[in-house]
């Protein structure tokens, strides 16, 4: 029973991990861009929510309305005026810029908010739960997070496949120079993609902050989890990312249970091992279209 419980909790955690990974997956899928500050942006969003929530005295859910658009704007501007200048066949400049940004964000948060752990108090929903048949208690909050993640990923997939702008994204991804001939400004497409990526990771950061305490240096761990979800699922596939998040979530909760039962391994370590195994035996990912990272 405890193992079934671990799996159910892992499925729900997988939703949050997939939401973390969405922006990374999208940015790589459309423009082969790897943002090493991805995890730190989530933590930055959570800290901003602390300030907004404290300043206005509202429930952190309301801070979503401020923080998510603000982060999207930052993403648009950063891509437009900084990241676009690093794009090209050589991955080094983009890695250096985003790695520098990652370290700057971590240390700026450390200066601004101190090293103390913070939390976002979302109220009674954090502890409310519903009992499934079989005696497994499922929290409303994890359920909500998983639902939001699913809605965001399905929505993004529909946006990419059904809308005019989504078509422009895909065209630019396939062949930027031909897309330019068709009148698509690829630099603005990239900026829009980064805005979406920042918005989703900001959402993930807020949920993370409501779920657990966090500190200024928690970003890299989140980046690594997001990356693992993307690679397990298959690079360039949003459905794969959802699946990868779920696999990683289950690995982590089962790993934690192994730690509790046998005092051996730990959640994140078990997740890393599953990731390495996936990389060894299925380098294209579960749903990857045969493309390697």
């Amino acid at each position: 029973m405890i193992w079934a419980n671990a799996v159910v909790q892992g499925l729900l955690l997988g939703g949050l991990l997939a939401l973390f990974a969405t922006g990374l997956s999208l940015a790589f899928g459309v423009m082969r861009f790897v943002n090493l500050a991805h995890g730190d942006l989530a933590v930055l969003a959570a800290f901003l929510a602390v300030s907004v929530t404290g300043g206005l005295g509202v429930n952190p859910f309301w801070s979503l309305l401020v923080v998510v658009p603000a982060m999207a704007a930052v993403g648009y501007l950063l891509q437009r005026y900084a990241f676009n200048r690093t794009m090209g066949p050589d991955p080094l400049p983009s890695i250096l810029v985003t790695f520098g940004l990652s370290v700057v964000i971590q240390n700026a948060l450390l200066e601004g908010y101190s090293a103390d752990s913070q939390g976002l108090d979302a109220g009674p929903i954090e502890t409310a739960s519903v009992e499934l048949p079989g005696g497994i208690a499922v929290g409303w909050f994890p359920l909500l997070m998983a639902a939001v993640a699913a809605v965001v990923l399905v929505g993004l997939q529909l946006f990419l496949s059904r809308t005019r702008m989504g078509r422009a994204f895909r065209a630019t991804s396939d062949d930027p120079s031909t897309a330019r001939l068709m009148g698509i400004d690829d630099r603005r497409v990239y900026a829009a993609v980064m805005a979406v990526a920042f918005a989703t990771v900001a959402m993930a950061g807020l949920f993370l902050g409501m779920r657990q305490t966090f500190g200024p240096s928690d970003g890299p761990a989140q980046l690594i989890f997001a990356f693992e979800a993307v690679v397990i699922g298959g690079i360039g596939s949003l459905w794969g990312t959802l699946l990868g998040g779920v696999v990683l979530g289950v690995s982590q909760t089962v790993g934690n249970q192994i730690d509790v039962e046998f005092n051996f391994l730990s959640g994140p370590l078990f997740g890393h091992l599953i990731f390495l195994a996936a990389l060894a035996f299925r380098p294209t990912g579960l749903l990857g279209a045969g493309r390697r990272a």
Partner: peptide, 26 residues
Amino acid sequence: ALFAFRLSGGYFAIGTWVAAEAVRLL
């Protein structure tokens, strides 16, 4: 290298980082 060399560019960067994290935890 057996794992990391399967990745390239930015994913090689994060892949090596994951390996370092795993070794640190071990």
